[in-house]
Design a protein around this nucleic acid. Structure first.
Lengths: 386, 386
DNA sequence: GTGAAAGCGCTAACAT
DNA sequence: ATGTTAGCGCTTTCAC
């Protein structure tokens, strides 16, 4: 009954409901007979579930190993007739080239690694996708991982990718010290950092203009009459968080506005923390409470939207990062949009240009942001509380 | 000036704005001296940017190759003292084990492939993440790719993953014929299909109860007084689309309600098509126009929300799939929620149980959906148009 | 046009 | 406790 094993642990399915359990005719179709024409008495049960190798194909086709290699790699110098015989053997045996061996020999893996913060974060979806498109265009596979914003985990992942000898690496850094990458980069692993600069090493970076974007967003609120504006952002060890805070301060200073102590909250983007921070700066005496909030990223923005939805008095809001459906909320959420797909595409293009031999000093590409007014950022301060 | 190459193509950065171009002190730090104590006159410029190998480490530490291997793999049987010397050599040389070679030898790559439809689709984010978590727990890396809902591209990707000898495969099928996977599966590539069953082969499947979920969602609309309900879903070759349509028909039949011709629209989820379909079924004479819509997935739902937002008369809506901020819209969007993270986790658990040797016939796990009322699904039909 | 031999960097199996 | 040998499946080199 059972396929490869005799252990009578039935364990048909993990925890959840098991429906049909459709008792199958029989999956035990005999493996695509590696036996065939190969005269060897069956090798000592090789790994890979004993798949046929080029040697097997060669034996079956009655040609040399190298000829098979030529056919598989579409190299020239093979008679149509020989090629046909080889192809027949390949099909009959169900041969598929083992790229692991190829990689070992060639030294390039045709794969790149992408380390981001959270695969589930919608902000990274388009970035991930854009990187994949470029990789695909270059015939490379994409190995993916999340750092969960944990520097140790980032390092662990990056080094695992290096051990796999990925050709290149795109990293959204969680940590602020990337010297551990120096030997790898010196050994030829092209590396491009995205969204935030690398820490303590010189490396290519592609990022958005966090400072300028935040400054423009806060200026937008000021232009709409606000004088007391709060800032809620991510943890200060994250570069973009402090850059955006700098932008906030610059805009306030530009307008000659003071910044009260309770108006700035940097920290975890956990909903509870953000909620508490927002509520704190919205309360207080009339000349202490903010009339507008600038949020440092999409997760924070969404939480603040929820907080504001529960309040009587309208509060203006501009958020860094765009997000789906921002336009359908009431009011629509005004944002400083950055283009995640372009971020990813640019980084990947840069990476492959390095892999193709482009030299030169590390480069920093900064993408402009775009202010998208949708309503929430154009709410004036409440009468009597300006 | 330039690092590895003399080609004077400056090509510092791709298209976008290049800010700082911070002219770097000098990245040309001499590579971490692969030279060192190794007496060999420098090997013939090996690949991998001539990284040190175990052999180099062994030479430097004055021990045998196998001893280095033992240290690197934390095997027993090495004197603390020898170990120290080996570790010193490793650090000095910046050695990192080449997993490509390891893989070739061991036969297992400790990596799995995940093929989904679109890395950028927020629905797959949590699924992707859940799979990654499980992979990580098993010490495996995740190779990712999008099929773009194109069967050929799916096959191309899957076979590329097989050539890399991933240990296992999680596939959200785009095509409806997976016989091309038979030789791979017979050769030992564990494969679990998610979201939709495999076509024309027997294989493990983890999916949500599309039929039951849709039936419950439509019944919910009927319970709120609707008799003319539209269905807008994905292309009929996608299994979930037809299953959900089946659920729609079942609910209507359960209530003894007829289904008019213009009420069902299956096809691309491109916004224009969905918009047109929605508008068509909302127009028409009073006893032809629908008073409620059931949407077959999150992309369709979002588009229909946009359509409805522009209309005077309220129309009830229930959508398959939950999405972020559905609760913050006006009205909140009632959905049939499926748990993407559990889908991914279950599939990955199943995959690794297969890899750990769990035999038995292919299994089908079906996860229950959950109706989440939020307002849009509880709108009664307009007076006089029931 | 074709093939034999060497070897990529590692681990398994067997010495010592 | 440590080292030596063979070979994973492929590509490279060079000979025929």
């Amino acid at each position: 009954m059972s396929r490869r094993d005799v252990r009578d642990t039935p364990r048909p399915a993990p925890t959840p409901t098991t429906e049909g359990q459709r008792t199958v005719a029989d999956t035990t179709a005999p493996p695509p007979s590696v036996s065939g024409g190969s005269r060897r008495p069956v090798p000592p049960q090789s790994r890979y579930g004993n798949r046929p190798t080029m040697k097997d194909v060669a034996a079956r086709a009655g040609v040399g190993l190298k000829t098979v290699s030529r056919v598989v790699n579409a190299e020239s110098g093979v008679t149509p007739d020989t090629e046909r015989r080889v192809r027949e053997a390949i099909d009959a045996l169900g041969f598929r080239r083992n790229d692991s061996a190829r990689v070992l020999r060639k030294g390039r893996t045709a794969s790149i690694g992408l380390v981001l913060e959270d695969l589930a974060d919608p902000f990274y979806g388009p970035l991930n996708r854009a990187v994949e498109e470029v990789a695909r265009a270059h015939g490379a596979l994409l190995i993916n991982g999340s750092s969960a914003e944990d520097p140790d985990r980032e390092q662990e992942l990056v080094l695992a990718l290096c051990a796999r000898r990925v050709d290149g690496l795109i990293v959204i850094p969680a940590g602020d010290d990337h010297r551990y990458l120096e030997p790898e980069m010196a050994a030829g692993v092209a590396t491009v950092f995205v969204d935030r600069p690398a820490g303590r090493i010189e490396a290519d970076v592609v990022r958005s203009d966090s400072f300028g974007g935040a400054r423009a967003g806060v200026a937008h609120l000021i232009a709409h009459g606000h004088r007391r504006i709060g800032f809620i952002g991510d943890q200060p060890r994250i570069h973009t968080a402090t850059e955006r805070l700098r932008g906030y301060h610059a805009a306030m200073a530009d307008a000659g506005l003071p910044v009260a102590e309770g108006w700035v909250a940097l920290g975890s983007t956990a909903p509870e923390r953000v909620r508490a921070a927002a509520e704190a700066m919205l309360e207080g005496t009339a000349d202490e409470a903010v009339t507008a909030v600038f949020t440092g990223n999409n997760r924070v923005t969404v939480t603040v939207v929820r907080v504001l939805a529960g309040r009587e008095h309208p509060v203006a809001l501009v958020g860094f990062d765009d997000f789906e459906l921002a336009d359908l909320l009431h009011p629509g959420v005004t944002v400083v949009a950055q283009d995640a797909a372009t971020l990813g595409r640019t980084a990947a293009d840069l990476l492959f240009s390095r892999l193709d031999g482009a030299g030169g000093a590390p480069v920093q590409v900064v993408l402009e942001t775009r202010l998208v007014p949708r309503g929430s950022g154009e709410i004036p301060p409440e009468r009597g509380r300006e």
